[in-house]
């Protein structure tokens, strides 16, 4: 079923918020089965990129396009994007008091994968296996969505949703932040299980290379001031770890201001 179109195709994407430009011409392609990482400092536009792919209403796209498997995402409402196969693991997942985790998972699987996928023993088995994989206790299902969750619990819950929703494109926004090393290993296992050996693609957004030791990316892109200034293999993440971002910032903004230089 592999299509020849990339899972995600971003071309010349310009976007901002309240007339302030944030993204200035992003180009990015993720072929089926690949995991890519976007790295960059705070404020470089990483989370904005994730939000725009998911359709956050605060951001305005001023130019360029975003396609999922050849379909134009920018025309769709956020829930239509989710149903088309986009998943975002949030940096700050929202609490919904009174909404039970088990109920929410069932409703979300029904909305995205269809009613039939959300009932019966098959669903329960899948749910149980995913929870075991992520080291999540059964009692979790009776709690309220993200309400009173620790940082680590929130991140595990995001990955649990990822495993059940089986999206075409998984975007993981700072999934490693707030996790200890065991937590990182556990969520990495979940990400690998959801993407490796499938036709899906994943985009990992992070500013440390820690998680990339456990989820080996096929490509690493460096985002500076709303542009991808450098792309490379997994070794680029290690280089950034050693050298920081300054040398790339200089490349992106030559000191003499001469763009041709």
């Amino acid at each position: 079923m592999a299509s020849d179109k990339p899972v995600l195709d971003i071309s010349n994407l310009h976007a901002g918020i309240d007339d302030t430009p944030i993204l200035r011409g992003i180009e990015l392609e993720i072929p089926a089965g690949e995991i890519h990482a976007i790295m960059g400092r705070n404020g470089s536009g990483k989370t904005t990129t994730a939000n725009i792919i998911m359709g956050h209403p605060d951001f305005e796209v001023t130019d360029g396009g975003v396609q999922l498997d050849g379909e134009d995402l920018l025309e769709m409402e956020p829930w239509e994007r989710a149903r088309a196969g986009v998943f975002l693991s949030f940096q700050y997942p929202q609490a919904v008091p009174g909404l039970q985790v088990g109920n929410f998972l069932r409703k979300s699987v029904a909305a995205i994968r269809g009613e039939d996928e959300a009932k019966g023993t098959e669903f329960r088995k899948k749910l149980k296996n995913a929870m075991t994989e992520l080291d999540i206790d059964r009692s979790f299902l009776g709690r309220y969505v993200n309400d009173g969750f620790s940082g680590g619990e929130k991140k595990r819950f995001e990955i649990l949703q990822l495993m059940l929703l089986q999206p075409k494109l998984a975007i993981l926004d700072e999934t490693d932040s707030g996790l200890d090393i065991d937590g990182i290993r556990t969520v990495a296992k979940g990400i690998n299980a959801a993407v490796r050996g499938t036709d899906s693609g994943a985009l990992i957004i992070t500013h440390y290379s820690r998680i990339l030791e456990h989820v080996q990316p096929d490509r690493v892109h460096v985002l500076i001031k709303g542009r991808i200034v450098k792309s490379g293999g997994p070794e680029l993440a290690l280089e950034l770890e050693e050298r920081g971002y300054e040398w790339l910032e200089e490349e992106a903004n030559p000191p003499n201001g001469n763009m041709e230089g």
Partner: peptide
Amino acid sequence: FYLMSRGHSE
């Protein structure tokens, strides 16, 4: 937005 990102209309 969080709930919409899980396939639920507004």
